[in-house]
Amino acid sequence: MNTELCTRIEGAARNMRRNMLEMTLHAGPNGAHIGGSLSSADIVAALYCGILDREGRGDHFVLSKGHCAMVQYAALCEIGAISKEELMTFEDNGGMFPAHQVMNDAIGIELSSGSLGLGLGFGIGLALADKKKGTKARTFVLLGNGECNEGSVWEAVMQAPKLKLDNLTAIVDSNHLQLDGGPEQIVPQANIAESFRSFGWEAVEINGHDIGAIYEALSERKEDGRPRMVVADTVKGKGVSFMENQVKYHHAGLTQAQYEQAVEELSHD
């Protein structure tokens, strides 16, 4: 990837993180799923600012880990699909941007989400439809590592290779935490990439905060009939020292002082 694009994506990720902190502050005592949104920010920034071609090819983005809707909202703001004013109505009573996203084709939210474990199947449906129609569209599905506890994820994992969906790319934002703690205490996920591979996926493992690596993993499309799984090693709460690897920031609010400290840290990033 060229330096200009890399800079653009890095800038977008920084803006998105800053906006997500502001959204969390805006949400007040309701709090926000800030930890997993920060871990996804580089991946989603790369998708929206370097990979997705929604208008031309008709690409799809399925945010299966719907509790991190705020990262999609921030990306939509970054590409101008919604305004900053609209973004800052996050979690407002009766607003368009609740904690879990609601399908809204006008601004490019393709599904209502929040119930974990279903987005990969939905993505299979979209990718299969594109295959049948003979389009060049690609479908990207973002999953969480905790989400992979859901059996329905594996129903979809087993199905996609049969359908030769090389237009389907799934990404696991593997931030090593879930609501109650680490996977080693809940459902161990060692060698998850190997698990996907064993079902016929092409699985690659990357650093989920390395823009170049993300871009390379997502931009490459082999037409070999295999769906692609990108296991992205990430840090929950990435970019804010007091949030990093802290399970309590899976869902939390921010005081004004915490917000200011977090924004200050990001500006030095």
Binding site: L111, L118, G119, G121, F122, G125, L126, A127, L128
Partner: peptide
């Protein structure tokens, strides 16, 4: 879930 994706398309 697959049915929903197809219907969406």
């Amino acid at each position: 879930a697959i049915a929903a994706g197809l219907a969406k398309s």
